[in-house]
Amino acid sequence: MMKTFVWVFLLASTLFFAGCRTGGVILRETPLNLSETRRAIVAVIGEPKSISQNGREMTSQYYDKKGKNIDKMDMARERFYTHVTVLGDRRPYDVQVQVLVEGRNEDGGFDLLDRDDDKAAPIAEKIRQSLNQSRDSRNVIDDFRSF
């Protein structure tokens, strides 16, 4: 009986902790509204390859290990891209930054290999700086539209 309880507890705790893993770097409580947050993110990652329908998820263009855009995709053995997600339903938002690594498979396509949090940290810091610059340079009058 006790042995069964221990196994059930271990299984439940493993599933719980596996489900809570987010990965990447999270910027907590960013002060800007959604459109200004998106503008600050685009200023760092460049023109996004894709944007979600609600505008809260952006994916950068593919780049190599050194951070340079990949010109000839057929020559690349691995590629990196940044996935940024704006979390929360109202201000202050949290911003999650992930750098994902894809490697070429035997069919010639790409498969997701890993997340690179070491590459995500400097990108997140640049986004934080861009958010702070946007906050300092915005027009206060525009934030309080009366009509």
Rank of each mutant, 00 (worst) to 15 (best):
F80I: 01
S137C: 04
D89E: 15
A18T: 07
F80H: 10
E125S: 06
I45Y: 02
E125R: 07
L113P: 01
D117N: 11
R77M: 08
N69A: 06
V8R: 06
K66Q: 09
D71W: 05
I41N: 00
N139S: 12
D142I: 10
E47S: 01
D89I: 13
G46Q: 09
R115E: 14
P31Y: 10
R91M: 15
L131A: 07
G46Y: 12
G88M: 14
Q129H: 10
V84C: 11
T82G: 04
D111C: 01
D136A: 10
V86D: 04
L100F: 07
L32I: 11
Q129R: 11
G24S: 15
T4F: 11
K119Q: 08
L100D: 03
I70P: 03
K66P: 01
I127H: 05
F16Q: 00
D117V: 04
E102C: 02
S146I: 15
S52D: 07
V101R: 14
I127F: 08
F110L: 05
E29A: 07
D111A: 03
Q61C: 01
R77K: 12
R90Y: 08
S137I: 08
M1G: 12
F80W: 12
F5W: 09
F144T: 04
I51M: 06
L11Y: 07
K68I: 09
R104F: 15
E125M: 10
I127M: 07
K72Y: 14
D111G: 03
Q61F: 02
G88I: 07
D64F: 00
S130I: 06
G109F: 12
Y63F: 15
L112M: 05
T59R: 00
R90F: 14
V42Q: 00
F5A: 10
V140S: 08
C20P: 02
F110H: 03
G88Y: 15
D74A: 14
T22K: 11
L11Q: 01
E29Q: 07
R39L: 05
P48S: 00
V140G: 04
K65I: 12
Q61K: 02
K65L: 10
L131I: 15
N33T: 01
Y81F: 11
A43V: 00
E57L: 09
G108L: 07
Q98F: 01
K68M: 03
V6T: 08
Y62I: 04
A18G: 12
A43S: 04
R39T: 10
T85R: 11
S52T: 09
R138H: 13
R104A: 03
S13G: 04
R138S: 09
V42N: 04
S52Q: 06
E78Q: 15
Y93T: 09
E102R: 04
T37A: 05
S134A: 03
L10N: 02
F9Y: 04
Y93L: 12
L100E: 06
G24E: 08
